[in-house]
Design a protein around this nucleic acid. Structure first.
Lengths: 136, 136
DNA sequence: ATATCTGCAAAACGTTTGCCGAGGA
DNA sequence: TCCTCGGCAAACGTTTTGCAGATAT
C-alpha cells in the first residue's frame, strides 16, 4: 500500500538501498543498520525499519521471512528462492527452478485461489558441511 | 534435542494436545491458550508455549512459520503444506503434491546440501473470494 | 510552502526464562 | 521419593509508533 504516494529520495534511503544491494548475505534490519551507520552515524534503527518496509512495498527490495529468526532483506528483486542452513542460519540465493523444482501452478486448494508460493530450501551450507563432516 | 528424556503426561499437556487436534485452524500459541483456558482456567501462557515447543520437538505436533505474523501450530503431523490467505491470513492444509507441485529433490544449490524444503501457498480463501469479487 | 521524512524514546508484540512450590511416575 | 513440571512475573529481541523538528520537492 501507499504505492501511489510519492517517495522522496533522501540520503538515508539511498544509502540503505546501496548497502543492501552491495551484499548477498540477506541481512536483518539490525545488520543493515550497522552497515549504514558507518556512513550515516546519526541514523536511527527506526528509520532503517521504516525505509526497508517502504521499499519492500514498492518492490525496490524484497522482504524474507525465514522459518526461524528475524526478518531479512534482499536487494535482489528478480524472482528466486532462498536456502537456509539448518546449522548456522546462513542464507543463500537459489535460482527458481533449481533442484528440478517445477512449482505449483495456479489452481484450487481447499477452496483457495492460489496465486503465488514461497519456497524455502533447507540444508547445510558449505562451511557447516566441511566443519561437521557432512561431506562424505 | 531433549528427545531422549521422558515426557510426563500432565493434564495441561493432554488438554493442549486435544484442543490443537480438535481444530483445523492452525492457531497461534495465544489462541491455543484461550481455548485451553476454558478447561484449565489457571494455566499460564508460558506453559502453553513450553508444551507446544516440547511437543513439536517430539513430533507430536507441527510448528508453522507463516511468511507474516506469529507462529502457528498444527495438530496434523502427516506431511503436507499450507495455504495462506493474502487478505485475512487464514490458513488451510494443502496436500503434498497439490497443484502439480513436484518439489525439489535433494541436490546442490550454492554449495548447500539441501535436505528438505518448506512450501507456503499464497492466495485467497473462499470467504475473501466471495466478499471481494475474486470469483468472476 | 508543505507534505514527507528523521531521530529519539517509548511502547508494543511474541516469546523465553528464572524461580520455587506442586505434582506425576 | 525424586525429578519434571506448572504458575507467575520479569526479561528478551524484534518491530512499531507518537511526536516535534528537519528536509526534499
Amino acid at each position: 500500500m501507499a504505492q501511489q504516494t510519492q517517495m522522496r529520495m533522501t540520503r538515508q534511503r539511498s544509502v540503505i538501498l546501496e548497502e543492501l544491494q552491495r551484499t548477498r548475505r540477506h541481512p536483518t534490519a539490525d545488520q543493515v543498520y550497522r552497515r549504514v551507520r558507518r556512513r550515516l552515524p546519526r541514523i536511527s534503527l527506526a528509520t532503517v525499519y521504516r525505509n526497508l518496509e517502504l521499499m519492500a512495498d514498492r518492490g525496490l527490495i524484497r522482504k524474507i521471512a525465514p522459518g526461524v529468526g528475524p526478518r531479512r532483506f534482499d536487494g535482489e528483486t528478480a524472482p528466486h528462492h532462498h536456502a537456509r542452513c539448518l546449522q548456522c542460519g546462513a542464507m543463500a540465493d537459489a535460482p527458481a527452478g533449481a533442484l528440478g523444482e517445477c512449482g505449483p501452478h495456479a489452481g484450487d486448494v481447499a477452496g483457495f485461489e492460489i496465486v503465488d508460493y514461497r519456497l524455502e530450501l533447507l540444508g547445510y551450507c558449505p562451511k557447516c558441511r566441511s566443519e561437521h563432516g557432512r561431506t562424505p
